[in-house]
């Protein structure tokens, strides 16, 4: 799904590190609810990343082991979340599947930001025909339903980690581009930047010293929210059957396999993968949300 909040976000004044340190010292009192939102988000994200890094600490089952248990065993006993129709342990598939979805979402967000940010900087800073052409292209992609575009690409390119990552990445490039371009233009017009220009500062210096640091602070927040969106898009593509080939545990695919068991009552096949997708996406959303509100005094005024 397309990022919906980013466009809402007012520009950050920068100084990320200082603010973060300051925030940590006086947080609870100053920020109230926002601080707890941030903490919950942070907890989920750190937990999931830890799980991704050390999956074997969380389960002794191999996610592909078809003899882990009987087929379609209900949750309980040694199978915390039950087993699927092939007899694989679902909790193990959830634990190992985190790698897949997180990996794809992170890589996709990284690719879109690495393309979107420089293009946005360039467009906003240089202006002119280049800006117009780029803006038009990006707006075209942005205003088109992102998922439909991703479906079209993924279906055409076929399954595979690289293909699905690219299909997800493409639709989020405009998100970064639009944000960065807007900020660049507004910063470029600030008095102190104009002053620097008049004093003969080189263009690259202005870009590097004044614009880039400011832009980066905001994109960190956006990045977090964007990962949440990328997670949902990856899951959606896998659910439709456009994701990865078998052999890699994948939440979205497990969910679409579980769908067949809806009327026969194997609820655990449907419930858990969806819950994992939701939790992971929620973690990154809350983290981004908390960061945005805390790093941005303008938002806090209300």
């Amino acid at each position: 799904m397309k990022n919906t909040r980013v466009s809402q976000l007012p520009p950050s004044p920068g100084g990320l590190l200082n603010r973060a340190l300051h925030a940590f010292s006086t947080a609870g009192k100053t920020y109230g609810a926002e601080w707890y939102i941030l903490l919950v988000g942070l907890f989920i994200v750190v937990f999931m990343i830890f799980m991704t890094a050390f999956p074997w600490l969380f389960t002794s089952f191999n996610p592909s082991d078809q003899d882990a248990g009987p087929q379609l065993a209900a949750p309980g006993g040694i199978h915390l979340m039950g087993t699927d129709n092939l007899g694989r342990d679902i909790w193990a598939r959830m634990v190992w599947g985190a790698q897949t979805i997180l990996g794809v979402a992170f890589a996709a967000a990284l690719i879109s930001s690495l393309i979107g940010i420089p293009l946005g900087l360039l467009s906003g800073f240089v202006g002119g025909p280049l800006d117009r052409v780029l803006s038009l292209t990006m707006d075209s992609v942005y205003s088109f339903p992102g998922l439909i575009l991703a479906i079209a690409f993924a279906a055409m390119m076929g399954p595979g980690v690289v293909n699905i990552t690219l299909a997800v990445a493409v639709i989020y490039i405009p998100t970064y581009y639009r944000l960065v371009r807007g900020q660049t233009i507004s910063i470029r017009e600030e008095l102190y930047v104009e002053a620097a220009q008049v004093l003969g500062a080189k263009r690259w210096t202005i870009l590097g010293r004044y614009i880039f640091p400011n832009v980066i602070a905001t994109t960190v927040v956006v990045f977090s929210v964007n990962i949440a969106d990328a997670i949902m898009t990856e899951a959606a593509l896998s659910y439709i059957g456009l994701g990865l080939p078998a052999g890699m545990p994948d939440w979205g695919m497990d969910l679409s396999m579980g769908k067949k068991f809806l009327p026969s009552g194997s609820w655990w096949l449907i419930t858990f993968p969806g819950m994992m997708i939701m939790t992971l996406a929620l973690g990154f959303t809350l983290l981004g949300e908390g960061l945005a509100e805390i790093l941005n005094p303008k938002l806090l005024e209300r």
Partner: peptide, 12 residues
């Protein structure tokens, strides 16, 4: 949809 499962079992 069962084709994925078939491939997975054959692999195993």
């Amino acid at each position: 949809d069962a084709e994925v499962n078939q491939a997975e079992v054959l692999k195993a």
